[in-house]
Design a protein around this nucleic acid. Structure first.
Lengths: 345, 345
DNA sequence: TTGTACGCGTTATCAT
DNA sequence: ATGATAACGCGTACAA
């Protein structure tokens, strides 16, 4: 019940605290075989467990890093987290995960708390609204890596995907299939990822000489998407394809499609930025843009690890490519009625 | 860049460390207005941040609790975690999450590490294989709450659901719909939840006077389920209904159903223990058994909190009821061809 | 009302 | 090879 300390072990083994400390830190070079054994036995007998808190106080390092994730509900986030944890397991680090729930205040609270707790470094999915904090950390040389979203800061380490390029490619594929009215459904454009994806959409449309109708750009919180789509479908010519900005948008869009009784692959095609675990269960063709979460998480962890150990990795920004994944590629005829043959223009 | 300590603040403000400490702990009772202001300014000027590590060492409490989850991939787990985090936010605690990945060794590693890190208590989804460790913690009076699964330990706090009763009810519903050959698909029966669910299945079958054919009890790791079902469907009379032991089993079972081209609600009915976020997107009728994750998480956090503060909550075991949720209740005729009218026996 | 001095459990630096 | 002692940054009697 009582905490047993190094001093207890030392007394039990008939040696001094420092010798016990040496033992624990595996500095056996000058240690006699039998003192070693005596200490071992004392530890065993007393059930001694070292106190990390005390060690951290002395060493000024906690062997803990923190992951501050903007929203843990994204499947992509958990993929990154798992990769970081794997890295940590192999490098004698421990990761603690905090969920900002898309709220900048929470993010700020966590960052401040974690620095007070002396975590050795952080990997942050920035909400985007705490630039002053981000900047301060970078300026002070505190180890930090930004993931998924860009901060616009100089000399900040970041790991992101090619949002614009991947989206552009996917939209071009839709256009190639004959789609001309493509709605772009996205959460409020506060963060770099969403802006990048929109940019890719714009580029694809413009490259194809298609108009970018602002009405087809549905910028809305997740819980309002259905009604926004409802009005879009009521007031305008219906889009023949939809782009969902991430996995949570996808759920909302799917609910809309289901309630509306639309048939995917016939009345409407769908592209989703993000992969999801149940993609294979979908009964209809959908295109998912998959980001390499595992590689990204690993790279972020590596970058942080190097900084913690005093390194200055180069380069500072890593951009990973995404790839398209087809769920249930359509087997039927090439051009359902709602599309325009791109050759027949 | 340099860490600024209480001593620096004291010097800057021209007072002593203890006065600064009083200030930080809001013991203003006997403090002069102007010393107070001077300290405030000094803190501001130096950008002082208290060091939690040092505080923890002194106070023997870290204000951190740990959640050790058997497998974070379960949707149910994340629901519980979120509820615990909410509670912590309101009680000046911080929760750190560790994923044992269903591996008892990992669980053991985490538990030992976290105790060394002096976390104030733990909420554990036990893998089931570390009884000695669990028992030791309970015996030492270390604050701990077990969630989801039972340990079989006396005087251990636990929060679980009525696995047997809920399963029994769901199976009875299937039987009431005319099903007689119901396959029970579950991961290896190492933990109490799975055993409880099987017990509920058995009871429902026996109560209805139906045979419990061991071939219909498919006990298998997730990644082997498909082939196990394959052989079952090849060698025996096909089951007309399936029970999936949890959400991951559900994914595997659905893949099987899809590959096999079976039509849910017609050729086969499905009951799943666990709810999932995309239940509403399913195109076919499925019954989900939903556990009250939020309430369970909250209760677990409360039980832990009370223990940390020296309380001995009563009772020790909390059993929460689950409820059935229908996705896409069938609108069509009551008795498709593959079922037997229960009245016509 | 404020300051002094010690303890928390460990590691680091010297001695021995 | 091992031991004595001083940090680490904070909280807290107790003294002033």
């Amino acid at each position: 019940m009582k905490k047993v300390t190094m001093a207890d072990v030392a007394k039990e083994a008939g040696v001094s605290k420092s010798t016990v400390s040496q033992f624990l830190n595996k500095r056996f070079e000058y240690m006699g075989e039998n003192t070693k054994k005596r200490i071992e036995e004392a530890i065993e007998k007393l059930g001694y467990q070292p106190n990390f808190i005390a060690r951290s106080l002395k060493q000024k390092r906690t062997s803990m890093i923190a992951i501050i994730v903007a929203n843990i509900l994204h499947y992509f986030s958990t993929g990154i987290i798992r990769a970081i944890e794997d890295f940590c397991r192999d490098h004698d680090l421990h990761a603690i995960v905090c969920n900002a729930d898309d709220q900048p205040d929470q993010e700020r609270r966590y960052i401040e708390m974690l620095r007070a707790k002396q975590v050795d470094g952080m990997i942050i999915f920035p909400t985007g609204k705490n630039r002053d904090l981000y900047e301060q950390m970078v300026r002070e040389g505190y180890p930090v890596v930004f993931v998924d979203r860009q901060t616009g800061l100089d000399h900040a380490y970041s790991v992101v995907t090619d949002n614009a390029a991947a989206t552009c490619q996917a939209i071009k594929q839709l256009i190639g299939q004959g789609h001309q009215r493509i709605a772009f459904v996205v959460q409020p454009l506060m963060v770099s990822t969403r802006k990048g994806r929109l940019e890719g959409y714009r580029k694809a449309m413009e490259d194809a000489g298609l108009p970018v109708d602002p009405d087809y750009i549905v910028e809305s919180p997740v819980d309002e998407v259905k009604s926004r789509l409802e009005s879009l479908f009521a007031s305008k010519e219906r889009p023949t394809a939809l782009f969902a900005g991430n996995d949570r948008m996808f759920l909302a869009v799917m609910e809309f499609i289901k309630e509306k009784g639309l048939v995917l692959g016939e009345e409407v095609d769908l592209v989703v930025f993000d992969n999801i675990p149940f993609a294979r269960l979908m009964d209809h063709p959908i295109t998912f843009i998959e980001q390499p979460a595992a590689e990204m998480g690993r790279k972020a962890a590596e970058l942080l690890f190097e900084q913690i150990n005093g390194g200055k990795p180069e380069p500072e920004e890593y951009v990973f490519p995404s790839r398209m994944v087809q769920a249930n590629p359509p087997a039927g005829p090439a051009l359902p009625g709602n599309r325009v043959d791109p050759e027949r223009k």
